[in-house]
């Protein structure tokens, strides 16, 4: 029997497979395809203090081995989430994490404080890395001082597990990781999307209404893997790895690079059953490699 359980400090996951925010709706969208209770956790859609309409269409462009998106945090706001969505999904027998985003620090703080009151939400993922909003978002996650200040203020009101989602659009991601660790982050998740762009040469127009957008999918995996490895060597808090994971082999690579858990994002769009397949694939890998505890694989890359 293999043991898939992992701990992110106090947060216990039955297995290391989670879903990436913005790719899994509120879980309900996948109920026809999988049993959500088989996952280690789900990250629901980015939630902000107030309703956001998101960016105008077109918001998506396919790229080789990936896609660009510029959704822009479309959501109905945290009050709507607490009153209408949370009651529908709080029966899921898995960890439900809310991805919290904002334009100003007060928005993050107020949103986090409201989520703190929800019994069945054991953690939030602080999104200081969304590239698709004009104000806030990634701006917080690209300097040590602003990343530190948003985490410091949220830490004052949020009493449960505080995960911080990091942007890859920085010179040195380890500096940001260390800054949020110092302010009391319980874990870091990385990477959010890479800032990218696509143009239609025939019309000379950008393919996204916002011109630039966030790149995801297997094309970003080598960058993500490198960053997980760098951060693993820089901080002591657990790491949740994501970026182009398409199968169990990819998931294992992130764990070997130092991730305690992983998130599956864009792959959900292509195979809505991919998450449970990855759980099975990790089990199969462990049996084949005679690994008893999945935690034995964390950072177990052989560099010599």
């Amino acid at each position: 029997m293999v043991n898939l359980e992992v701990k992110l400090k106090d947060l216990i996951l039955k297995n290391p497979v989670m879903t990436a925010s913005g790719t899994f709706g509120y879980g309900e969208e996948f109920e026809d395809f999988i049993d959500i209770s088989q996952l280690g956790g789900i990250l629901v859609k980015g939630t902000t203090r107030h309703h956001r309409e998101g960016n105008p269409y077109p918001r998506m462009a396919e790229t080789p081995s990936g896609m660009l998106n510029a959704v822009g945090l479309q959501n109905k706001g945290v009050e709507y989430f607490c009153d209408n969505i949370y009651p529908r999904i709080n029966h899921y027998n898995t960890n439900i994490l809310v991805n919290v985003s904002g334009s100003v620090i007060e928005d993050y703080v107020e949103t986090a404080a409201m989520i703190n009151e929800l019994d069945k939400i054991p953690a939030i993922e602080l999104n200081i890395s969304c590239p698709n909003v004009k104000e806030g978002g990634m701006a917080f996650g690209t300097s040590c001082s602003s990343a530190a200040s948003v985490v410091r203020e949220v830490r004052k009101v949020y009493k449960k597990h505080l995960m911080v989602k990091l942007s890859p659009n920085v010179t040195d991601i380890t500096e940001i990781a260390k800054a949020v660790e110092a302010e009391g982050a319980d874990s870091v998740s990385l990477i959010n999307t890479l800032l990218g762009m696509a143009i239609d040469s025939e019309t000379r127009k950008p393919l996204l209404s916002t011109v630039t957008g966030g790149l995801s999918g297997p094309c970003v995996k080598p960058v993500a893997l490198r960053m997980v490895w760098q951060v693993f060597n820089a901080v002591n808090i657990p790491i949740v790895g994501l970026g182009g994971i398409m199968n169990a082999k990819d998931a294992i690579e992130f764990i070997l690079a130092g991730a305690s858990a992983i998130q599956i994002g864009t792959a959900n769009f292509i195979d809505p059953q991919i998450t449970v397949k990855v759980v099975e694939g990790i089990k199969e890998y462990m049996i084949r490699h005679q690994v008893e505890n999945v935690t034995d694989l964390i950072g177990a890359i052989k560099t010599q």
């Binding site: 918001r59 462009a61 998106n69 809505p272």
Partner: peptide, 13 residues
């Protein structure tokens, strides 16, 4: 244009 087709990605609005 859409990615998922079932309401998860919010790309096809």
């Amino acid at each position: 244009t859409m990615a998922c087709g079932f309401g998860a990605c919010l790309c096809c609005v």
